[in-house]
Design a binder for these strands. Structure first.
Length: 431
RNA sequence: GUGGUUGUAGCUCAAUCGGUUAGAGCGCCGGACUGUGGCUCCGGAGGUUGCGGGUUCAAGUCCCGUCAGCCACCCCA
């Protein structure tokens, strides 16, 4: 066996490529529907773009090396620094809010697992220059609509939504101040999992009281505004932006997808407000999508002080979910019409007709060898062709061919001049 | 990076206690059905049992290493 693809990298055979194209297509269609414009940047960047000011979380698993000129470079692990640079370059000339999206291939060097490779494609949508909660709703709605465009419903996929501004106040009220906030965020993220134990201990050692820890542990049980206002009457004000975001999603008719979930904090340190993740409803896969508001990041990276928010949605977990839910596309028929020669003398007519059909946009194939009709028909069938056109001497003498519907088996004689029309006519039926 | 677990045709799997030439279904290729596909029948190709070492008269099977997949951790784009 020849060399395989590197660990964590994928070969896309036609069937897999069909799934990828299906996902990309839904992403593009929906993003454009929201008025987002597509952009891209280089897949290889200077290492310092990531080590400098970006979140330290990523640099440990950068896919980096020295190029032949001795430059330290890295395959991009995320799109945000590139986006920040590009926006900063033209910030003055761009009408706000900026709505941009991209589907970059991203890389990271780490041990692969299911749903987590060394390479993936990720839809990135960012809304820049809008501080208000309607912007948050807009971006979350976009993510949800990609799910819907792919045939997923509120019983397949859930949005878990929180807000760091609200969390900070809640923790403060519970007796966990800003000094211990990072620890508390980590603990919150791990709550209910086996790794929570050590975080709890760390919190305790950092001086958090038993009451404060108990309050933190009760946050997952808060799933409605009523719960929140009952438990933290004084903190409800800090939840106002989040509430307006959720109200907007309700008004759009997408409320069914959304759960208030105070355990969502996101790993990246730069989030400053709304944070959200999309999961499969059964929670058996990793996150499909994650994002939030990062109002200070553009200033830090690009030197342009603009509020912003966005999300990343990877193709790997999403593809697995589509297969699991049975909404992945079947590989499309490679040819719609298959032309068959009865004798070698029919070849020129087949070539002419095939080319005319192709010119009119129909997917056409024909046997390249002078096989017997039966064998050519077998190939037509294997290709999934909707119909076959048999070109033989008898009909050809009359300027006609036989058009056969491979689904019903019915066939009719059609003049060569009207073949394209007859084909289109037949394709219009059924489907 | 750490720990656990699994590796047999393209795919899904079989092979007694360590015992002849590692099998089957599907798929693929070819043929029969002689101007018409699906069905059926016949034939064929395809394996260094992931790779390397060790134990043994004998290894797909036991041991060690390694690589790869999966799971958990780290981390989570």
């Amino acid at each position: 066996m020849p060399l395989q693809a590197l660990p964590g990298f994928r070969d896309f055979f036609p069937e897999e490529f069909a799934l990828r194209a299906h996902i990309f297509d839904a992403m593009r269609r929906v993003a454009r529907r929201y008025g987002f414009e597509e952009y891209d940047g280089p897949p290889l960047e200077a290492l310092e773009l990531y080590t400098d000011k970006s979140g330290d979380e990523i640099i440990g698993q950068l896919y980096s090396f020295a190029d032949k000129g001795g430059r330290d470079v890295a395959l991009r692990p995320e799109m945000t620094p590139t986006l920040a640079r590009m926006v900063a370059e033209r910030a003055n000339g761009l009408k706000k809010p900026i709505r941009w999206f991209s589907i970059p291939q991203l890389f990271r060097y780490e041990r692969q697992q299911r749903g987590r490779l060394r390479e993936h494609f990720q839809l990135n949508c960012d809304l820049i220059g809008e501080p208000g909660p309607l912007g948050d709703a807009e971006v979350i709605a976009l993510a949800v609509d990609v799910m819907r465009a792919l045939g997923l419903t509120a019983t397949d996929v859930r949005v878990r939504l929180s807000d760091r501004r609200l969390l900070a106040v809640l923790l403060e009220e519970a007796g966990i101040g800003t000094a211990r906030q990072a620890l508390a965020f980590q603990a919150l993220d791990k709550l209910g999992r086996s790794e929570y134990g050590p975080r709890r201990k760390a919190l305790h050692e950092a001086g958090a009281t038993d009451d404060a820890i108990a309050a933190l542990e009760s946050l997952p049980s808060i799933t409605t505004w009523a719960d929140l206002e009952t438990r933290f009457p004084a903190a409800a004000g800090a939840g106002a932006p989040l509430r307006r975001t959720m109200d907007a999603l309700d008004a759009m008719g997408l409320g069914d997808f959304v759960d208030l979930d105070l355990t969502i904090v996101r790993g990246l340190a730069y989030y400053t407000g709304t944070v959200f993740e999309l999961f499969d409803a059964q929670r058996s896969l990793r996150a499909i999508c994650g994002g939030g508001r990062y109002d200070n990041l553009l200033d830090r990276i690009g030197g342009v002080d603009l509020p912003a928010l966005g999300f990343g949605m990877g193709d790997v977990v999403l593809g697995e979910l589509l297969k699991e839910r049975g909404v992945a596309p079947k590989a499309p028929a490679s040819a719609e019409v298959f032309l068959v020669t009865a004798t070698p003398e029919d070849r020129p007519a087949v070539l002419k007709l095939a080319h005319e059909l192709r010119d009119s946009g129909i997917r056409v194939e024909y046997s390249l060898a002078d096989d017997k009709i039966g064998k050519q028909m077998k190939l037509a069938d294997a290709r999934g062709a909707r119909m076959a056109v048999v070109v033989g001497p008898d009909e050809r003498a009359r300027g006609a061919v036989v058009l056969k519907d491979l689904r019903t088996g019915a066939q009719q004689e059609v003049s060569m001049e009207t073949l394209a029309d007859a084909v289109r006519n037949l394709m219009g039926q059924g489907r």
